[in-house]
Design a protein around this nucleic acid. Structure first.
Lengths: 223, 223
DNA sequence: GTCTATAACCTGATAGAC
DNA sequence: GTCTATCAGGTTATAGAC
């Protein structure tokens, strides 16, 4: 028995050494690690942390359950990685956009609407996933992203202050309005689609129209 | 063994008959049934179906775990009852409001904003709960509520058509806008509050302001 | 109706062969 | 690195005493 173990162990090491000689950077695992992460992204964003079973992720990625723990140690650690990357994808770019001194307010609004309509059309479950999991564990946000206190002194708030007819209205209202008008229709999609008896293509068309409409609406609100 | 079973069965029936003679309507259970439902409402809306354990509900309602199954047979059956009631609370009233021929469009918008700001201020977890669980099981909505196809021929859509400067814009956009502007700030609360470094009282004040602002904004969008 | 105890099942994680 | 088998712990639901 021990002899058998020894034999396979040695053969395994020999194989590994051989591969490493061929390819200095071990690429065999990179691929499966990425496969697991992609599957985890899909399943977690669709079902949420609690409803997701590690078995679902394993099955979805076509690998074995044990491998998941081999690469990521635990369900929670894997989730944290996915969550962090998702949040970064959601926030990255937007911060520089909002602080860009060279673009007008209207262009900024258009850019925000376009970015999020693109992002959420590609991954419809994203906003509800982030919002739900953030509520379940509100501490996850602040540590990671450096957005605390960022908005108050941002360029866009300055531009809103200048554009707003009524200085008594907090500029944050308009930030909330832009995000609400862009994101919420996707979040409430099951209700809206049912409410107005829309096909998928009808709904998608409406969302496309909003790329142009939202900047126009926000402009009107400011007056 | 059979004899023992028989004995308890008979004794149980006798007891029940006795109680019914004393009190025509059995009130002993009504109270605990309601206690369980209230606890279930709290826990389900806060943690969602998957993350909720029946033990949490039992503990929260101060009763025994077995009683939950005695009254509601299963976690899922209890959940369905809670979900149905929650949806009805969210939709009831609004349908008649939207079809009221005697109120102006602006008054309708004000009424919607007020109703939902009241409702969600009292139960902040409600919208995310509904939206999340609806996504997890989209079939839950259509069967229950009679809102399929309701909107298209509603009074408010007619009023929006009249008020809108641009007849090319689907009235549904404005319905989505009203709901988005009202509900989404609450849903995105953890992000917005963090983004602008707001205290709870600051945020609540902003939401109060929106009661008046939203009707004004929507009016401006229509022009 | 309400409780305690437990059955039956499921899920995350690991041990160990290969 | 990857698999199979299995453990340990937790969860829903029920049986049975009172």
């Amino acid at each position: 028995m021990n002899q058998t173990n020894n034999f396979y162990l040695c053969s395994g090491l020999y194989l590994k050494a051989y591969k490493m000689a061929k390819k200095p950077k071990i690429e065999t695992n990179r691929s499966t690690e990425e496969k697991i992460k992609e599957a985890a992204r899909r399943v977690f964003t669709q079902k949420g942390y609690a409803a997701t079973r590690t078995r679902d992720i394993a099955e979805e990625s076509g690998i074995n359950l044990a491998l998941l723990n081999y690469y990521f140690r635990s369900k929670e650690k894997l989730f944290d990685i996915i969550m962090l990357e998702t949040l970064q994808g959601f926030i990255s770019g937007i911060k520089v956009m909002l602080n860009d001194e060279s673009t007008s307010l209207e262009k900024k609004i258009e850019a925000i609407a376009n970015k999020y309509i693109d992002l959420i059309t590609a991954q419809p479950d994203l906003p509800l996933f982030i919002l739900s999991e953030l509520r379940a564990n509100p501490d996850r946000l602040p540590a990671n992203m450096g957005l605390k206190d960022f908005l108050v002194k941002s360029c866009i708030v300055k531009q809103i202050r200048e554009a707003s007819k009524d200085p008594g209205v907090n500029p944050l209202h308009f930030i909330m309005n832009i995000i609400s008008l862009t994101v919420f229709p996707f979040v409430g999609r099951p209700i809206f689609q049912n409410l107005a008896n829309l096909k998928k293509s009808d709904f998608d068309l409406l969302m496309e129209q909003r790329r142009k409409l939202i900047p126009k609406w926000v402009k009107a609100m400011l007056k």
